[in-house]
Simulated assay, not measured.
Amino acid sequence: MATKEITSENFKSTVEQDGIVLLDFWAEWCGPCKRFGPIFEQVSEKYENYTFGKVDTEANQELSAALQVQSIPTLMMFRDGVLLAREAGLMPPQALEDLIAQAEALNMDDVRAQIAEQQAGQQEQG
């Protein structure tokens, strides 16, 4: 599956869908982004059942600011609407594939239960 362009308009619907979603935050002027782009595209072709999206930080400054993207490239990985990973910097193909394998191995019911426990703990403290 080829990568798709992610904007402020389709971000929420993209990351909230079922399955694994990987987003590459990049900019045209960014050297490491230009080197990571082909790696991201190559890995996307191996995992056709997952969504791979690219967010141009220059064209989507409000979205990038809201997500606190401070350096690029930044990779964010979601599964079933839950942010699982956020990695800044150039990533080799094997590291990206390892991250995907970790997401595949997760029991999302357990992840959601952990999130609920954390939120309940924060509410008790707050």
Rank of each mutant, 00 (worst) to 15 (best):
S64M: 13
V69Y: 12
L84Q: 14
A65F: 00
S71I: 09
A95G: 05
D56H: 06
G81V: 12
V69D: 06
G89S: 01
T74Q: 05
V82F: 02
Q70M: 13
Q94D: 13
L84W: 02
A85R: 15
T74H: 04
K54Y: 11
K54R: 12
N60M: 14
N60Q: 15
K54G: 11
M76Y: 08
L67Q: 03
M77C: 03
S64G: 07
P73I: 08
Q70H: 04
Q61T: 02
E87I: 15
L75D: 05
P92N: 04
I72G: 01
K54W: 10
L84V: 00
A88P: 04
Q61D: 12
L67C: 03
L84F: 11
A88Y: 06
L75N: 03
R86S: 14
V69S: 01
K54I: 12
F78R: 05
E58A: 12
L63E: 14
P92Y: 00
G81F: 07
M76N: 00
L63F: 06
E62M: 11
K54E: 13
L84K: 01
V69E: 06
P73Q: 07
G81K: 07
P73G: 08
V55F: 06
K54A: 08
A66H: 11
P92K: 00
Q61E: 15
V69F: 01
M77D: 00
I72D: 08
N60L: 13
Q68V: 07
P93Q: 08
L63I: 07
Q94G: 10
L83Y: 01
A66L: 07
L90Y: 13
G89L: 09
N60G: 14
L83H: 08
M76W: 11
G53I: 10
R86F: 05
S71Y: 05
E62F: 12
Q94H: 05
S71G: 08
L63S: 04
Q68N: 10
A59Y: 02
